[in-house]
Amino acid sequence: MRRLLNLQPRRPLRLALFLAPVAAMLVTYLAFSDARLAENPQDRLLPAFSTMGDTLLRMATEPDRRSGDLLFWLDTGVSLQRLALGVGLGALTALMLGVASGLIPLAGASLSPLLAIIAMVPPLAILPILLIAFGVGELAKVMLIAIGVAPFIARELEGRVRELPREQLIKAQTLGAGTWLTLWYVVLPQILPRLFDAVRLSLGAAWLFLIAAEAIASTEGLGYRIFLMRRYLAMDLILPYVAWMTGLAWFLDYALRVLNRRLFPWYGAEAGR
């Protein structure tokens, strides 16, 4: 018998091991759902998959009676826009702060400790301040996401810039580059793929801030909808919405990974230096 830590599952077994827990969860859900529905067909807590499908289809294809909007697509569009604006704004700010702080010691002397402190502020705790400062419109929600992810990304990039070999910075100077040209031609191009990675890692937090902001002050959006429907115990809508958001989050992560590989083919292949 080989040791457990040396046993490698082959392809069919690997697939089975992945599917087994998923199937177990689905079967468990179905069993409990069926049991509850058999007792009370009106039960809302564990709706059947067909009910969830019907609800989702209705949200996606039938215009809302009051506004005439296709609510599912409206929610998705609005939420993704907030997420993109917030993460984009945060990433751009973080890129400038992180690179300045990491490359230029004079800038780092003031930015580095400041970022360390700001990163400790719980973003949700300043949501009331944002709502007061920017109103309950789009700006407050975008700002919450931006402020939520920027310090993390900035500190990450600062560290990455400092990790660039000292030799490269000296080399750039012997090749005629000053501070600005070194930043533009040596540091920035090497930091961009790391920015993509940092954004990917911060997406989880960005979703959290998005849903929190929508739950508190909004009139549409994925997060708004599930918190609205909570009042009606509408699990037939909440569960597919959660699944949809999970899918979107996974896709964004995947897209960023692919984009990073395409745009920066040299990235990750530096090991042989």
Binding site: P165, K171, L175, G176, L181, W266
Partner: peptide, 26 residues
Amino acid sequence: GVVYQRYSVFPHLTALENVCFGLERT
């Protein structure tokens, strides 16, 4: 000019771009 044991060339530039680096900057 300097050549180090490691980290002497820029990993994000092709060989040609690496050689062009000094010419372009100056």
